[in-house]
């Protein structure tokens, strides 16, 4: 299991989908157009989503 994972601030997420298209593991989906949801099992904690999120609301955190 990876050391890190991504976590999203759902109340601030704008559901733009940038993280979805950037994630190398396809671990993110947009739940019904409301916010991004990360599949913790698939996420490797690379932090690419965090670096690309225009709203700065998805974060790489310790598991």
């Amino acid at each position: 299991m990876a050391k890190y994972k991504a976590e999203n601030e759902r109340d601030r997420c704008v559901a733009c989908g940038v993280c979805v298209s950037m994630c190398p593991r396809d671990a993110i989906t947009i739940y019904k157009g409301c916010y991004a949801v990360i599949d913790e099992e698939t996420c490797i904690g690379c932090g690419i989503c965090e670096k690309n999120c225009p709203a700065g609301v998805i974060h790489k955190v310790l598991r």
């Binding site: 559901a15 733009c16 989908g17 298209s21 157009g33």
Partner: peptide, 9 residues
């Protein structure tokens, strides 16, 4: 019911 499919794709 397509959510933000337009923005996303």
């Amino acid at each position: 019911g397509g959510g933000k499919g337009y923005c996303n794709k």
